[in-house]
């Protein structure tokens, strides 16, 4: 029998992520694919891709933990665990001194506070509304015709943020259009949007309780404009891992490893 792997599959509203770790807990493969319309298919695809990277077959997976919005759509799962527990686990293992996690995904944002042992002290999630999430940024970027990965760098070049008062995605969109019509620069509007997200997230962060070191995870952590704005709002520096998107899947994989050890 070859190497045994422990898999974490995180099916989010925008992307599906898979991480494989070995018995020592070392990351052997990680893959991100768009979720598309069919979550079960996305889960299959992302796991198959991860297995391919290490030249393994499904039979080599000793345990699989599914997490994320679409966790119930993952086939052959050993168990499901929520994103909150997985992000906390991933952050704690990578950064044992982590005391808080801010995660902004496609459809939700959350703030988690941890104790020294990595246990969740408290967590807060956004409400039903998509404001302050990746989806919000996507809609706005499209409205402004700015590629998503340019949003952060361009926002940082603004001399001041434009004032965006609506936190609702629908209202903010029309507000952005009227700002453009008034001749406001795209950069200032982008900076205004980053600020607006940071304010939303800050209220979650304050309720959950923040202390250094704060890890930021999720796809939006790649957006430097948002990261700087949150740092300012929270008043603490953020640590962004190399692959902020895979933290949930990593946590899941590590939990799968625990599961098998039990």
């Amino acid at each position: 029998m070859g190497v045994q792997y422990f898999a974490g599959v995180d099916v989010g509203s925008a992307t599906a992520k898979a991480v494989l770790v070995d018995a020592a807990g070392t990351i052997c493969a990680h893959v991100v694919v768009p979720s598309g319309g069919n979550l079960t298919l996305a889960a299959d695809r992302v796991l198959a891709a991860a297995l391919e990277r290490v030249g393994a077959v499904p039979g080599d997976i000793a345990a699989l933990v599914a997490t994320g919005y679409g966790r119930e759509s993952v086939a052959n799962r050993t168990k499901t665990v929520t994103e909150i527990t997985c992000h906390a686990k991933g952050a704690h293992v990578l950064y044992p001194d982590a005391r808080a996690v801010i995660d902004i995904g496609g459809q939700d944002s959350k703030a988690i506070s941890l104790d020294a042992a990595g246990m969740i002290r408290k967590f807060e999630m956004n409400d039903k509304c998509a404001a302050g999430t990746g989806r919000f940024l996507e809609v706005m970027a499209r409205t402004l015709e700015v590629p998503l990965d340019e949003v952060g760098p361009r926002a940082l070049t603004a001399d001041r943020p434009a004032k965006i008062s609506s936190t609702c995605t629908v209202f903010a969109e029309s507000e952005v259009i009227s700002l453009l019509a008034q001749g406001e620069t795209v950069e200032r509007i982008l900076a205004g949007l980053c600020l607006s997200i940071s304010q939303r997230v800050n209220s979650l962060a304050m309720r959950a309780g923040m202390a250094p070191r704060v890890i930021m995870t999720g796809g939006v952590a790649k957006n430097t404009g948002v990261v700087r704005a949150i740092e300012k709002a929270v008043g603490l520096p953020l640590t962004v891992p190399d692959q902020p998107q895979i933290m949930g899947a990593l946590g899941a994989a590590l939990l799968a490893r625990n599961e098998a050890v039990k």
């Binding site: 994103e83 909150i84 246990m119």
Partner: peptide, 10 residues
């Protein structure tokens, strides 16, 4: 549902 699951996990 997710919130409750996470709370119960903790």
């Amino acid at each position: 549902g997710t919130r409750i699951d996470a709370f119960m996990e903790s």
